[in-house]
Write a protein that binds this DNA or RNA. Structure first.
Lengths: 360, 360
DNA sequence: CTGTTAGCGCCTTCAG
DNA sequence: CTGAAGGCGCTAACAG
C-alpha cells in the first residue's frame, strides 16, 4: 500500500530543525524553557513545512485539545442556528479554540445517536468538553465536562441552562386574555423536554388564574417542528367552536399556524391571534411580524459555552465550589409585534365564509 | 454511577471478556474470523461497560474513521444551512457514518482559519475526507480527499461543485429587462469567489445583449452578507437617477434591499423590483415573496458528499479514472415570485419599451 | 480462530 | 535548556 499519508509530522520538523521531537513539542506548546533561538528556528520550520499537529495524536496523549463539542438535534433548524451564533460568539472571545459540531440523523433513535455522538467525541478524546442541546438521553457515558441546554428533566445530572418557560408562557397567555380572548389553544413541544412541559403548565395556570376553564380539546401535542404542528393546527381550526388565539410552544410551531391559516383563508391577526416562543431572528420578518416570547436562545448558547470553559479549566462554577446540580435560568420576555389583535366583537366562527365546514 | 472512573478502554473490555485486545478489536470491526461465541461474549461486555471506541486512537492508527468533515464559513447562515441539509440527507443514506462540522470565526483571517480547520481535521486524522464550502484558500496542506463547493478560482485543484452562475444571472437580468427595466443595479458577492464573478459577468452580458450600456455606478461590491449589503443598497437608492430594479448576487443581499426599501418607504415591487440568487427556503416567505435564481444549494451539498464518499472509497469519479480536475456544474433556474413588476410608467428613463426585445 | 508484537503522532516523565 | 525513553488506545501485521 502506497504511503498515502504524506502528512508532515512532528518528526519531520524535528529533523529539519536539528532538534529533538521533544523540543519541537515544547515549542508548539509555548513552553518557556526553550532557548529563544531554538524557538524561532523551530517556528520557522513549522511554518515552512506547513506543519499542523495531529488532533488525534494530541487528544490521545494529553487530555487537552482546546476543542469543544456541540451536539445538536438538527443542524438546520433556526433554533440551533441561534445557539450556534451564541456559541461561536463566545468561543471567538476565548483563546484560539477550535470548535466541532456534530449532528445525528434524527430517526427516533436519536437517543442512541446523540449518545454515540457524545461518546464519540469525548471518549474519543477529541474534545475537552461538550454542550448537548435538548438531549433525549439523560445520562452520558463520560467524565468530561458536559453542559446541557434545555434539559429533559427537572434535575439534570449536569450543569444546565433553561429559560423561565413557565413565566414566559404565563405572560403570553395573559396577554392574549387581556385582548379579550377566551378560546385560546396551545400546541405543545417535545414532551420529553422540560421546557415544553413548563410552557404547557404556564398556559394552564394563566387560564385558571383568569377563571377560564381549560378545554383539553384545545391542547395539541407537537414536537417543536413546523411539519408536526401543521396537522395540529388543522385539528384546532376545524373545531366547531374554533379558538380565536393560539399559543404556540415555539416559533417554528407558530409558522405552522401561519401556513394553515393562509391555506384556510384566515387572516392573522384579524381572524386569529398567534403567539410564539423563542424569538428567532426570522420571526420579526414574518408577515405579520410574530408576537413571541423571547428566551434569547443565542445567549443561552453563549452561556453554555462560558460554563463549559470554566468546567474545562477546572474552575468552580459557584463560590462554594459544591457539586450540587447547577441550573442557570434565563429570563424570558414577551415581545409584542403584529400577530395578535383584540378578539373580534362577533363570534369568530364563519362570519362571511359560509363555505362547507371542514369535516374531520 | 456518579463516580465514573476513567473512560473504559478496549483493554477493560478485553480483560472482562477474557480475550485479547486484538480479538476485541476484531469484533468491533466486524471481522469475520472470530468465533461466534467469542463475538457474542465480547459484544455483551461492550454493551455492559458502555464502551465506545476512541475516535482519536482509531484515527491515529488506521486511516479510516468513517467521519467526514465539513468546513463552512459561517454556520449560522442560511446558505450553509441549505448545504447542511443536503449533506445530512446524503450521509444518512450511507453507511453509519458520523459527521463533524467545524467553523472558524470570520475575521478576514479566515483564510488561515479555514486552512487550520482543514488541517486540524485531516492531519488530525479525524476525518476521512473534507468538504470545504466557499474557501478563501486555494491550496490545502493535505493529501486526504477534498471536495469544494463554490471554489474561488476557475480551475480548482480539487473536485468542485459550482452552479451555472453566469447563465442564472443572465436569466435574472433578462427577466428584468423583459419587464421594461433599464436602470438595473447589481450588488456583487465576495470578490474572491468565482460564483460572484460569474454572476457579475452574466449581469454585464445581459445588459450588453439588450443594448443597455453598463453603468458602473450601478454596481456595488458586497460580500454575500446582509449587513455588508445594506450600505450598498443605500448608495444605490440615493442616486439621482435611481435604479428601478436591483439584481442581488444572493438572497441575503436581496434581504438587505428589502430592509432599506422599507426604511425609505419604497414599495417592492411597485417602486423597486428585486431579484435574488440561491433560492433559500426563507425567500419564499419574504413579503413579497422573492423572485430569485434557484441553484439548489441543498443539492450541491448532497452532491459534494456523494463525490467525497467515492473519493474516500477510492472509486474513480469518471469512467476514465483520470486525475483531471473534476468540476460539476449544477443548473440554475429563475423562480418567479412577487418581487418584480413592470417598470412604472412615470419612470424617468427612456420609454422605449416597444423595442425592448430581449435578444437571447 | 486467537494472541503477540509493533507501532500511528504526540506529550510527559526523567535524566543529562 | 535539551534529549531519550515510555506509553495514550487502537489496529495491522505476523505468528501460533
Amino acid at each position: 500500500m502506497k504511503r498515502a499519508t504524506r502528512t508532515v509530522t512532528i518528526r519531520d520538523v524535528a529533523r529539519r530543525s536539528g532538534v529533538s521531537v521533544t523540543t519541537v513539542s515544547r515549542v508548539l506548546n509555548n513552553r518557556l524553557d526553550v532557548a529563544e533561538e531554538t524557538t524561532k528556528k523551530v517556528q520557522a520550520v513549522v511554518h515552512d513545512l506547513g506543519y499542523g499537529s495531529s488532533l488525534a495524536a494530541r487528544g490521545l496523549r494529553s487530555r487537552r485539545t482546546n476543542v469543544i463539542g456541540l451536539i445538536i438535534p438538527e443542524v438546520a433548524s433556526h433554533y440551533c442556528q441561534e445557539i450556534l451564533r451564541g456559541v461561536n460568539r463566545t468561543i471567538a472571545l476565548l483563546d484560539k479554540n477550535l470548535i466541532i459540531y456534530t449532528s445525528g440523523v434524527l430517526q427516533r433513535e436519536n437517543i442512541a445517536l446523540h449518545e454515540r455522538s457524545s461518546v464519540g467525541l469525548l471518549n474519543g478524546g477529541i474534545a475537552d468538553g461538550v454542550i448537548v442541546v435538548t438531549p433525549t438521553a439523560t445520562q452520558f457515558a463520560t467524565d468530561a465536562p458536559l453542559v446541557i441546554i434545555d434539559p429533559n428533566n427537572d434535575n439534570p445530572s449536569y450543569p444546565a441552562i433553561i429559560a423561565t418557560n413557565r413565566e414566559g408562557a404565563l405572560s403570553a397567555v395573559d396577554y392574549l386574555i387581556s385582548l379579550g380572548h377566551r378560546r385560546i389553544a396551545h400546541i405543545s413541544g417535545r414532551r420529553e423536554l422540560i421546557s415544553s412541559v413548563q410552557r404547557l403548565q404556564g398556559y394552564r395556570e394563566a387560564l385558571e388564574a383568569a377563571g377560564i376553564p381549560v378545554d383539553e380539546e384545545l391542547i395539541e401535542i407537537g414536537d417543536f417542528s413546523t411539519a408536526t404542528a401543521i396537522p395540529c393546527v388543522r385539528n384546532l381550526l376545524a373545531l366547531t367552536d374554533r379558538p380565536t388565539a393560539i399559543f404556540a410552544s415555539n416559533d417554528m410551531t407558530a409558522i405552522a399556524v401561519y401556513e394553515v391559516a393562509a391555506e384556510m383563508g384566515l387572516r392573522i391577526p384579524q381572524d386569529l391571534s398567534v403567539v410564539g416562543f423563542d424569538n428567532l431572528r426570522e420571526s420579526a420578518f414574518l408577515f405579520p411580524p410574530l408576537t413571541t416570547v423571547d428566551q434569547s436562545v443565542e445567549k443561552m448558547g453563549a452561556m453554555a459555552m462560558e460554563i463549559l470553559v470554566k468546567l474545562v479549566k477546572g474552575e468552580p462554577l459557584t463560590p462554594e465550589a459544591d457539586d450540587a446540580p447547577y441550573l442557570v435560568k434565563v429570563p424570558t420576555q414577551l415581545v409584542v409585534r403584529g400577530s395578535c389583535a383584540p378578539v373580534s366583537p362577533r363570534s369568530p366562527t364563519r362570519t362571511h365564509n359560509a363555505d362547507s365546514a371542514v369535516s374531520r
